[in-house]
Amino acid sequence: MNHDSWSLWRAQVAAILRLEIKKNFLAKRGLWIYLLAAAPVVLMWVHAALNLRDHRVCDLGHDSLIFAAMFQFFYLRLAIFFGCVGVFLRLFRGEMMEKSLHYYLLAPVRREVLLVGKYLAGVITTSIIFCTGTALALIALLVHVPRTAAEQYLFAGGGLGHVLAYIGTAALACIGYGGVFLLMGFLFRNPVVPVVLVFLWEGANPFLPALLKRLSVIFYLHSLIPISVPAQGDFAFLAILSTPTPAYLAVAGLLLIALAGLWLAARQVRKLEINYGVE
């Protein structure tokens, strides 16, 4: 592998990125992902607008707890999860269904380069959408409390770190789930059943023994959330408490899951043959 190969692959990845990002961002069928990302933003802004209209002063501590619960139970577990299902399953399986993947496979580009280009495009798309959603919701959280309270929270109370942690967690969730669903797109012709199984596995994470907890994306994401909300519901008492992983290990764990997904997907893409008649 010389320098020329690397520069060629970089140029090819950049070309694939351009194509895919345009496809991902401007597709009408991807509108529901924007809606998923915008739902908490709309809610937080409506809450802010109602309080500003009625001249009510909100308790920032209470509101940040509500945001933490919403981020943990809605954004990470549902919005980003299903958003990544939509984006990453479509990268290869969707193109097979639309009978358009052969255009890529006929181009003089290594399969692995194609895989990396598509994966990066998916990560960039979902990260931009969901990180923007997180940031906008956090702005709504801070905009309707007195300015001094917001400044104190941000600069004296470690709030700025919380903001960065939330946005970073959203991006890492896209990277982790992206790796998982990219692989699923290769392994299953109809990935709905495995997606349901992953959803149940991720949902059951609080109730799993400590060792099994580590085999999920949500475990590492929980370790990165600044304010962790305990499991709720009728079966909350069954939750098994475990010490959160240090941030550097959680990030490494998530990147490992994504890399494992990419590596296994690369093995699949090398022997990929398309038979549109079967799809």
Partner: peptide
């Protein structure tokens, strides 16, 4: 699933 989560979020935030 998303409907359930969104419903909870609406109740909590608003």
């Amino acid at each position: 699933f998303v409907g359930a989560g969104l419903g909870q979020a609406i109740n909590a935030v608003l």
